[in-house]
Every structure is written in C-alpha cells, then in structure tokens.
C-alpha cells in the first residue's frame, strides 16, 4: 500500500529539499516505486537537486488544471528507474494549488507508487498545509538551533490539527530528522544537544545528518547524496533514515561516531 510522507519544517533552508531527494532516492534504491513531489510552487528546487531541471515539461499545477495528464508530468530518474519526480510550477501562482486538485493527484499517485514523498515549502501557510494534508507520516526536518526547533514545534501542532488524518481522528506519524549536525560545535557545547531537542519536541528520532561538504557537492552536480556519494557519512545517515521509515528498527548513532568507538546510541523513542 502507498505511503505518503511529507518533509516539512516551518523554518526555511533547514534541508527539506535535500532530504526529500536523499530519502526518495534511498527508498527507490530499495527497489520500491517512489515519487518525490515538489510543493514549493513558485520556488521549485527539487528538480535541480535531482538533476532533472532540463527535463521539466509539465508540472503539478498543469496536472491539477487538466492541461496535462499525470503520466506526462512525471519525470523518471535517469539513474534509478524506480525513482520519479513530479515538479512544481516555477511561473504559476500558488493560488492554482487547490485543495481538490491536490487530493485528486494524491489519489492517483497512490495507485501507482509505494512511496510518495512531498517536499513542503517553508512557512506555515497554505502551501505548507496543502503539502502535509494527505500525509500518513511526517518527517520534521530540524537543525539543532533555537529558531528551527521553535518552528518545528509549530509545524508539529499543525500536523496534529490540519492534516486529513488528524481531522479523521487518527494520529499522524511524526519523525524528527536532525540535519546539519556539526560535531565540532556539539563538542564545544554551542549546539543544542540531541537529547534536548528530542525532549523539547518529543517525537521519535529518525536520523541525524551531519553538516557535510558531500551534501553540497551532491546538489552541485544534481544528484541526491544517496546516489552521488553512497559511502559518505551523510548518505549512510539518510539511507538508514529511509530504512527506519520503511519500518526497520535500527538505533540512531551520532555522526562521526559510527566507526571506531561506540558512539552514543539514541533509542527510537523520544525522551
């Protein structure tokens, strides 16, 4: 059965698009049919991070407005045949993203994919609430930094009230993905501790992604880091997060402590 995941954060620039691409590719690499959907209408970037920017013909809004059929708008990844992209519109107005339209597209995607990963725009406005609307599971992308944690708290509130699942009285699954984790700053004590973030937000941890040049390099060449640099620490962390999304039970280790010593291991449950 199809699973819809929203990658969301409230705060901008924390790594939603990077994470959508990396998790989408990691799930597709497991052989499961995956589509990544860009909800950032007007500021699309997922196409660029996926390296498909020159192949965009139709987009989500074209499908919603009936200018194109869904299969015409889907772009199949050149590296992984199980991976697909539904781009956002760069030029159209976000007003064209209607609630009904989004629901129709989601229903159609559910019929042919195992995983539907929605890249949310920043903010708590309509674009963000539409992206989370049909999700079964949310990945809340957070940087270990005060304003990001505060905004994640707001988004968690919205996930519990504004999603279709919440309105039906069901609980939406929420997972914390801590990104841009900087080992050196953590050591100096100038970065929020993982335990503190977990305690404050009290949702289970699905992964810790290190601040890494490999991530930048991957987006420079237009490839999710899980494809571009499979053995990098960031790719390993994303791949394990994808495994946890798929239901595998793996402990989360701090970046930089995977090899050699046994690092601190975090349980899957929030404090």
């Amino acid at each position: 059965m199809a699973k819809v995941i929203v990658v969301t954060s409230g705060k901008g620039g924390v790594g939603k698009t990077t994470s959508t691409a990396a998790l989408g590719a990691a799930l597709a690499q497991r052989g499961e049919k995956t589509v990544v959907v860009d909800f950032d209408v007007g500021l699309r970037n997922l196409d660029l991070v996926m390296g498909a920017e020159r192949r965009v013909v139709y987009d989500l809004i074209n499908v919603i407005q009936g200018d194109a059929k869904l299969p015409q708008a889907l772009i199949r990844d050149k590296r992984l045949e199980t991976l697909h992209l539904l781009p956002a519109s760069q030029t159209r107005d976000k007003e064209n993203l209607t609630e009904d339209g989004v629901e129709r597209v989601m229903d159609e995607l559910r019929k042919s994919f195992d995983w539907i990963i929605c890249d949310s725009p920043a903010g708590i406005e309509r674009g963000a609430t539409l992206a989370m609307r049909h999700a079964d599971t949310a990945v809340v992308v957070t940087n270990p930094e005060v304003s990001s944690v505060r905004d994640s708290d707001r988004i968690i509130g919205l996930l519990d009230s504004k999603t279709a699942k919440a309105e039906r009285g069901d609980k939406i699954d929420k997972h914390l993905l801590l990104t841009r984790y900087d080992g050196a700053r953590a050591e100096r004590g100038d970065m929020l501790k993982v335990d503190d973030v977990l305690e404050i937000l009290s949702i289970p941890l699905i992964g810790i992604i290190p601040e890494s040049m490999d991530v930048l390099r991957a987006s420079n060449v237009g490839s999710p880091v899980t494809i571009a640099d499979e053995r990098s620490e960031a790719a390993i962390a994303y791949r394990q997060a994808a495994q946890r999304l798929a239901g595998e039970n793996l402990p989360v280790a701090l970046p930089g402590e995977r090899r050699g010593f046994f690092g601190k291991i975090f349980g899957r449950r929030a404090a």
């Binding site: 930094e145 005060v146 944690v149 505060r150 708290d153 707001r154 509130g157 100096r188 004590g189 100038d190 970065m191 929020l192 501790k193 503190d196 404050i200």
Partner: peptide
C-alpha cells in the same frame, strides 16, 4: 567561557510552554 547550548535549551523550554498554551 560557558557553553551556550544549555541556555538555548532553557529558553526554548520556557518559550514553547507559553506558545503551546497560548495557541
């Protein structure tokens, strides 16, 4: 120089308690 992370944690805990209530 003290580490700043504990201050960040404490401020967040107070702030969020208020924000959650005020919603």
């Amino acid at each position: 120089k003290e580490s700043s992370a504990p201050a960040a944690r404490d401020r967040l805990q107070v702030l969020l308690a208020h924000e959650r209530a005020s919603v």
